[in-house]
């Protein structure tokens, strides 16, 4: 009986760890939403700041790296891009790449 309980507990642990890895299917969406104040809901800009909806992952990560290194001059993105980890940026770039731009680029 004891053995069985231990086994079940292990199994639970295994399951919850598997979940932790596939973790949080909405994390990309949630992190990308932190960009929306300036870049628009789902990356569809209301104007004046570039939209991100539909931007390819490679392009976005390339830009971010240029902001981080200073290769691309910025007013604020060089400071903000350093606040996110590589894996967070990866999820954000995936999310915006999967969005459809509404009404074309602005």
């Amino acid at each position: 009986m004891k053995k069985k309980l231990a086994g079940t507990a292990l199994l639970w642990l295994g399951l919850s760890m598997a979940c932790a890895q596939a973790a949080d299917p909405n994390l990309g969406r949630n992190l990308a939403a932190t960009c929306a104040n300036c870049h628009g809901t789902d990356g569809n800009s209301a104007g004046g700041i570039p939209g991100l909806a539909g931007m390819s992952k490679a392009k976005m990560l390339g830009l971010i790296n240029e902001f981080r290194s200073g290769a691309k001059p910025a007013t604020i993105m060089h400071q903000l891009s350093k606040g996110y980890t590589d894996s967070q940026l990866d999820l954000i770039a995936d999310y915006f790449a999967s969005r459809t731009p509404v009404g074309g680029a602005k």
Binding site: N37, G40, T41, G47, I49
Partner: peptide, 11 residues
């Protein structure tokens, strides 16, 4: 950018 920020956050 400040005015564009306002426009975007309001939207």
């Amino acid at each position: 950018y400040a005015l564009a920020w306002a426009r975007n956050i309001w939207a």
